[in-house]
Design a protein around this nucleic acid. Structure first.
Lengths: 355, 355
DNA sequence: TTGTAGGCGTTATCAC
DNA sequence: GTGATAACGCCTACAA
């Protein structure tokens, strides 16, 4: 239980040099130091278990090599995936990540950002839909630290990365229409979210393009959770029992939709076809395998980090949202899987058994 | 784009006092300063948008108010839940959380810990099964920083929090036996994990207690993923087609099990009953609703934080693992749900629609 | 090739 | 009540 860090001064003392010299060689730069003193210093550092104190370093360098991540809680699996990819990408580039997860009511956004700011993160990535409503968060972000967001931030000025949500709605709807569906319902996230509105716009535009009239009874708001989606589905099928297809806004809700459709005695896809969004790893193993528009969350995380680092180093960052392409993954829940493939169109090899 | 932090010296200057005085009042302590200077200083600080630089503070205080979290990637939903609860609990207690997510191959554990150590976190929580194998991580943890782990750490000396895994295996198995099952298979996580071995011990002990002989053909190793579990299930049902029940080691894998059982033409629970572990939010919305042994991940996260903070403040921490109780949640996948309840025994109210 | 001086923003301990 | 002095561990000139 030593628990005492050795400082560069001790290393220097043991090596018989001044601590500034030690600093030079320990910081890697091939500064003018004789090879032998260098190796001696390195050896001592190693034997003493020297770990640079980045706190002290940050103080003088005025950057911490740390970025902040403000994310929603674990209920949103998609955001978890995004967060992980952000952290891994950041670390690959030499940055550490300080996280804050919003409470379920989303009330502590500003607290989180303040925490990040006081710890002097070099930048912040926001991955929490709730921040769309939080002007205090927006204000803090705008005045104190470079930021990138997965969602629109009130007042703008914060670059947005994400994927083409209108296209997501269009792809799903187009596909269902091409299968002959005419009464296509939708179980959505909260209406006030831009993602939701964009997807809905894609959905409606596609209906109109096929001479079909969108009807508000067919669109039911839910809350991204399976439970909320199940309730919404019940409502939808009560209002419009003839519904033959449902476009769901995420895979977690799709679980609830499948459950409730079954509970009403209907079969998927025979009676009701389902297409979702996200393509989480479990999607292809639902019964029936879920057709879904794949949202490239991993790639989005990396782009978010890249963008943020650019913005940190002062490179101008486009004000236009950076939108990554989405792709429809066709499985059986929409009725078009190849039966020969055992009810699944695609099956990815599963991860190595490393854990 | 000011992006320049105002220091306490500037605040002091504008308020016409020395920066030491400003420091006193800004740190809240009711130190001997006249009420009026105090309010003046506060006012100036506010108007200037002063945010304390915790980097500098950490340097002198020799603690950062930050804990490190080393976690596996997002494939493990249960760990995501744990991580979120850790972060929220830590923040409630005034601590920030620096995270690192292990790569899929788990090879970068030591890199993550070094990153945390160099940033001088006050303690570390490990929530990655892979660390059970990583003696370098163990060594770093032991020599540099107080730690608490969700899993056993090589060499011991790191307190463990978790839940009673043997009991988990026992509860599930006992329940299936009580329903008359005699050929109970198990789709498990990787055998080398302690969780897995403990659950398996509970399973076997329970079989033996009922005069049933465990058989290795009935136990198939998988990798925590739906895909791996589907493959394992196929194998299990090929080896022992008469299997009438399956005990799965997590809810994500249960999705794969349900899928594969259906793919072989069997019905759940009529032909094969399924009981799982975790009780993730989606479990009750699977079709059929999943019976599962609830693992209290949120509570575990809080206990982990409490334990770590104790250990940081020097309070002696028990070497015995702290085990939280588990509970069987009975739904329809094991065949004992109340049909009147629409195939589900329990249904929790879903979250508020705040996102 | 190596060492010296100064400073990063803060807190802590004492004088005044 | 308030301010001066020192220190936290490190880095960046610049001087020797």
């Amino acid at each position: 239980m030593a628990r005492r860090y050795v400082s560069i001064k001790e290393v220097a003392a043991r090596a018989g040099v001044s601590f500034q010299t030690a600093s030079k060689v320990l910081n890697g730069g091939n500064v003018r130091v004789s090879a032998e003193t260098a190796t001696r210093i390195m050896a001592v550092a190693k034997s003493l278990g020297y770990r640079p104190n980045t706190i002290a370093r940050s103080l003088v360098r005025r950057t911490t090599g740390t970025i902040g991540l403000i994310a929603s809680d674990a209920t949103d699996v998609a955001i978890s995936h995004f967060s992980v990819s952000v952290e891994q990408a950041a670390r690959r580039r030499g940055y550490a990540v300080l996280v804050g997860h919003l409470a379920a009511d989303g009330a502590d956004g500003a607290d989180i950002v303040r925490m990040l700011i006081e710890r002097r993160v070099d930048g912040v990535i926001a991955a929490a839909p709730q921040v769309e409503d939080d002007s205090e968060v927006a204000q803090l972000l705008r005045t104190y630290v470079p930021a990138v967001s997965l969602h629109h931030v009130p007042g703008g000025q914060v670059p947005v990365v994400g994927s083409n949500q209108g296209e997501t709605g269009r792809l799903a709807t187009e596909h269902l229409i091409s299968h002959g569906h005419r009464l296509i319902g939708s179980v959505t996230g909260p209406f006030r979210r831009r993602v939701v509105r964009s997807r809905l716009r894609g959905y409606e535009a596609t209906l109109l393009a096929h001479d079909m009239e969108p009807h508000e009874d067919l669109v039911v708001e839910a809350d991204w959770t399976p439970g909320g989606a199940a309730a919404a589905t019940r409502l939808l099928l009560e209002r419009v029992p003839e519904t033959t297809a449902i476009f769901v806004h995420n895979d977690a809700m799709a679980i609830g939709v499948l459950s409730e459709v079954a509970a009403t005695g209907r079969r998927v896809p025979a009676d009701v076809a389902v297409v979702s969004c996200d393509d989480m790893p479990f999607a292809e193993y639902l019964t029936p395998a879920l057709s879904t528009v794949r949202v490239p969350l991993g790639a989005t995380g990396e782009r978010a980090v890249d963008l943020l680092l650019q913005s940190i180093t002062g490179t101008a960052v486009s004000a236009e949202p950076l939108l990554l392409p989405v792709e429809l993954i066709n499985r059986s829940s929409c009725g078009c899987a190849d039966p020969a493939a055992g009810g699944r169109m695609t099956r990815r090899p599963h991860d190595e058994m490393t854990r």
